[in-house]
Measured scan of single mutants.
Amino acid sequence: PEDLERKVRELQKNGVSPEQIEKILRRDGVDEREVQELVKKVS
Score class of each variant (00 low, 15 high):
residue 26 R to W: 05
residue 13 K to L: 10
residue 16 V to M: 15
residue 35 V to P: 01
residue 10 E to I: 11
residue 31 D to Y: 03
residue 27 R to M: 13
residue 14 N to R: 13
residue 15 G to Q: 04
residue 32 E to D: 07
residue 23 K to I: 14
residue 11 L to K: 00
residue 36 Q to C: 10
residue 40 K to D: 12
residue 11 L to R: 01
residue 37 E to D: 13
residue 8 V to W: 05
residue 2 E to W: 02
residue 4 L to G: 01
residue 30 V to R: 04
residue 36 Q to E: 12
residue 12 Q to S: 13
residue 43 S to K: 13
residue 10 E to T: 07
residue 33 R to P: 05
residue 33 R to H: 10
residue 7 K to T: 06
residue 8 V to G: 01
residue 15 G to V: 01
residue 42 V to P: 03
residue 36 Q to N: 09
residue 25 L to N: 01
residue 17 S to A: 09
residue 43 S to C: 12
residue 8 V to D: 01
residue 22 E to H: 03
residue 34 E to W: 15
residue 39 V to Q: 04
residue 10 E to H: 08
residue 33 R to Y: 08
residue 34 E to H: 11
residue 23 K to H: 08
residue 7 K to C: 09
residue 13 K to D: 08
residue 17 S to K: 08
residue 34 E to N: 09
residue 5 E to V: 13
residue 1 P to H: 14
residue 10 E to N: 10
residue 43 S to I: 15
residue 24 I to R: 04
residue 14 N to Q: 14
residue 41 K to S: 11
residue 34 E to I: 15
residue 39 V to H: 03
residue 34 E to D: 12
residue 41 K to N: 10
residue 24 I to S: 03
residue 12 Q to V: 15
residue 15 G to M: 04
residue 26 R to N: 07
residue 15 G to F: 01
residue 33 R to I: 10
residue 25 L to P: 02
residue 16 V to Q: 07
residue 30 V to D: 02
residue 1 P to G: 12
residue 24 I to E: 07
residue 19 E to P: 04
residue 19 E to Y: 00
residue 9 R to G: 03
residue 8 V to Y: 06
residue 29 G to T: 01
residue 25 L to Y: 00
residue 8 V to P: 00
residue 29 G to L: 04
residue 14 N to H: 11
residue 27 R to F: 07
residue 8 V to S: 01
residue 41 K to P: 06
residue 5 E to Y: 09
residue 18 P to D: 09
residue 10 E to L: 10
residue 43 S to L: 15
residue 13 K to R: 13
residue 2 E to H: 12
residue 9 R to V: 06
residue 38 L to M: 11
residue 42 V to N: 05
residue 29 G to P: 00
residue 5 E to H: 10
residue 36 Q to R: 11
residue 40 K to I: 06
residue 11 L to G: 00
residue 3 D to Y: 12
residue 40 K to V: 07
residue 28 D to P: 05
residue 37 E to R: 10
residue 25 L to Q: 02
residue 1 P to K: 14
residue 29 G to S: 03
residue 35 V to I: 15
residue 13 K to V: 06
residue 8 V to L: 05
residue 31 D to Q: 07
residue 2 E to L: 13
residue 38 L to Q: 06
residue 15 G to D: 03
residue 18 P to H: 08
residue 35 V to S: 03
residue 37 E to C: 07
residue 25 L to W: 00
residue 16 V to P: 00
residue 7 K to S: 04
residue 17 S to G: 07
residue 42 V to D: 05
residue 32 E to T: 06
residue 36 Q to M: 06
residue 39 V to P: 02
residue 23 K to N: 14
residue 37 E to I: 06
residue 23 K to L: 03
residue 26 R to A: 12
residue 4 L to T: 05
residue 18 P to G: 06
residue 32 E to S: 07
residue 7 K to Q: 06
residue 38 L to T: 06
residue 20 Q to F: 05
residue 11 L to V: 00
residue 42 V to S: 06
residue 17 S to R: 08
residue 9 R to P: 00
residue 7 K to M: 11
residue 27 R to T: 13
residue 12 Q to Y: 15
residue 29 G to F: 02
residue 1 P to C: 11
residue 40 K to G: 11
residue 36 Q to V: 09
residue 18 P to C: 11
residue 30 V to W: 15
residue 2 E to P: 09
residue 37 E to P: 00
residue 40 K to C: 09
residue 7 K to A: 06
residue 36 Q to L: 06
residue 40 K to H: 10
residue 17 S to I: 05
residue 31 D to F: 04
residue 31 D to H: 06
residue 17 S to M: 06
residue 16 V to I: 12
residue 31 D to I: 05
residue 6 R to C: 10
residue 38 L to V: 13
residue 22 E to M: 07
residue 11 L to Q: 01
residue 32 E to N: 04
residue 33 R to S: 12
residue 9 R to F: 00
residue 36 Q to Y: 00
residue 19 E to V: 06
residue 28 D to L: 15
residue 18 P to A: 12
residue 1 P to Q: 11
residue 6 R to W: 07
residue 32 E to A: 09
residue 26 R to V: 14
residue 16 V to S: 07
residue 24 I to D: 04
residue 33 R to L: 10
residue 37 E to G: 05
residue 30 V to F: 14
residue 23 K to D: 15
residue 5 E to N: 07
residue 40 K to A: 13
residue 30 V to G: 03
residue 27 R to Q: 15
residue 23 K to W: 00
residue 15 G to C: 10
residue 12 Q to D: 05
residue 13 K to H: 09
residue 9 R to K: 10
residue 25 L to S: 02
residue 43 S to R: 14
residue 21 I to L: 05
residue 4 L to Q: 04
residue 40 K to P: 05
residue 14 N to W: 04
residue 3 D to L: 11
residue 33 R to N: 11
residue 24 I to T: 02
residue 32 E to V: 07
residue 29 G to E: 03
residue 15 G to H: 05
residue 39 V to A: 04
residue 43 S to T: 13
residue 11 L to D: 01
residue 42 V to K: 02
residue 18 P to I: 15
residue 3 D to W: 13
residue 3 D to T: 11
residue 23 K to M: 04
residue 42 V to W: 00
residue 14 N to I: 10
residue 31 D to R: 04
residue 9 R to C: 15
residue 7 K to I: 09
residue 12 Q to K: 10
residue 21 I to E: 01
residue 27 R to K: 13
residue 9 R to H: 07
residue 8 V to R: 02
residue 8 V to K: 01
residue 29 G to Y: 02
residue 18 P to M: 15
residue 15 G to I: 00
residue 23 K to F: 00
residue 22 E to Y: 01
residue 17 S to L: 07
residue 17 S to T: 13
residue 40 K to R: 08
residue 34 E to M: 15
residue 25 L to M: 05
residue 8 V to M: 04
residue 6 R to K: 12
residue 40 K to E: 13
residue 3 D to N: 12
residue 24 I to V: 04
residue 9 R to W: 00
residue 8 V to H: 01
residue 36 Q to H: 14
residue 17 S to E: 05
residue 23 K to C: 10
residue 5 E to R: 10
residue 25 L to I: 05
residue 34 E to K: 14
residue 11 L to I: 01
residue 14 N to E: 10
residue 19 E to A: 11
residue 40 K to N: 12
residue 13 K to C: 09
residue 20 Q to P: 00
residue 29 G to W: 02
residue 8 V to I: 12
residue 3 D to F: 12
residue 26 R to P: 03
residue 42 V to H: 04
residue 38 L to W: 02
residue 24 I to Y: 00
residue 31 D to S: 14
residue 5 E to D: 07
residue 5 E to A: 11
residue 26 R to L: 15
residue 23 K to P: 03
residue 11 L to W: 07
residue 31 D to M: 06
residue 2 E to N: 13
residue 42 V to I: 15
residue 4 L to A: 05
residue 14 N to Y: 05
residue 36 Q to S: 06
residue 28 D to T: 08
residue 6 R to L: 09
residue 22 E to P: 00
residue 12 Q to T: 13
residue 40 K to F: 01
residue 39 V to M: 13
residue 30 V to L: 15
residue 12 Q to F: 15
residue 39 V to T: 04
residue 24 I to F: 00
residue 38 L to R: 04
residue 19 E to F: 00
residue 4 L to P: 04
residue 14 N to F: 05
residue 41 K to F: 03
residue 19 E to W: 00
residue 16 V to H: 14
residue 41 K to W: 03
residue 20 Q to R: 06
residue 6 R to H: 10
residue 31 D to P: 13
residue 43 S to H: 12
residue 40 K to T: 11
residue 20 Q to G: 09
residue 27 R to D: 15
residue 4 L to I: 09
residue 4 L to R: 06
residue 11 L to C: 04
residue 1 P to I: 13
residue 20 Q to D: 15
residue 37 E to L: 03
residue 30 V to E: 04
residue 20 Q to H: 08
residue 28 D to R: 08
residue 27 R to A: 15
residue 39 V to S: 02
residue 21 I to N: 00
residue 2 E to T: 14
residue 6 R to G: 08
residue 2 E to Y: 05
residue 6 R to P: 02
residue 36 Q to P: 04
residue 30 V to I: 12
residue 5 E to C: 06
residue 1 P to Y: 14
residue 10 E to V: 07
residue 11 L to T: 00
residue 33 R to Q: 10
residue 16 V to L: 14
residue 24 I to K: 03
residue 39 V to C: 07
residue 6 R to A: 12
residue 28 D to M: 15
residue 6 R to N: 11
residue 13 K to N: 10
residue 22 E to T: 06
residue 18 P to Y: 13
residue 29 G to H: 02
residue 21 I to M: 05
residue 13 K to P: 01
residue 35 V to C: 05
residue 35 V to R: 02
residue 37 E to Q: 08
residue 37 E to T: 02
residue 13 K to A: 12
residue 9 R to I: 09
residue 26 R to H: 08
residue 11 L to F: 04
residue 13 K to F: 07
residue 15 G to Y: 00
residue 29 G to I: 02
residue 19 E to R: 09
residue 26 R to Q: 11
residue 36 Q to I: 11
residue 6 R to Q: 11
residue 43 S to N: 11
residue 14 N to A: 14
residue 43 S to P: 06
residue 27 R to N: 14
residue 32 E to R: 05
residue 38 L to I: 14
residue 33 R to K: 14
residue 24 I to P: 00
residue 12 Q to R: 12
residue 16 V to R: 06
residue 20 Q to V: 11
residue 12 Q to L: 15
residue 12 Q to I: 15
residue 23 K to E: 15
residue 7 K to D: 01
residue 26 R to Y: 06
residue 38 L to Y: 00
residue 37 E to N: 09
residue 7 K to F: 09
residue 21 I to R: 00
residue 16 V to Y: 15
residue 6 R to I: 08
residue 22 E to N: 03
residue 32 E to Q: 07
residue 36 Q to K: 12
residue 6 R to S: 11
residue 13 K to G: 07
residue 36 Q to W: 00
residue 5 E to I: 14
residue 6 R to V: 08
residue 16 V to F: 15
residue 35 V to A: 12
residue 42 V to F: 02
residue 43 S to G: 09
residue 6 R to T: 10
residue 10 E to Q: 11
residue 35 V to T: 05
residue 29 G to V: 02
residue 25 L to C: 07
residue 10 E to R: 08
residue 19 E to M: 03
residue 5 E to F: 05
residue 11 L to N: 01
residue 13 K to Y: 06
residue 28 D to Q: 14
residue 21 I to K: 01
residue 28 D to S: 13
residue 8 V to Q: 00
residue 20 Q to A: 10
residue 1 P to R: 14
residue 30 V to T: 04
residue 38 L to N: 02
residue 21 I to W: 05
residue 24 I to H: 04
residue 3 D to G: 11
residue 29 G to Q: 03
residue 12 Q to N: 08
residue 3 D to K: 08
residue 27 R to W: 04
residue 14 N to T: 09
residue 34 E to Q: 14
residue 14 N to C: 13
residue 27 R to G: 13
residue 8 V to E: 01
residue 34 E to T: 15
residue 10 E to M: 09
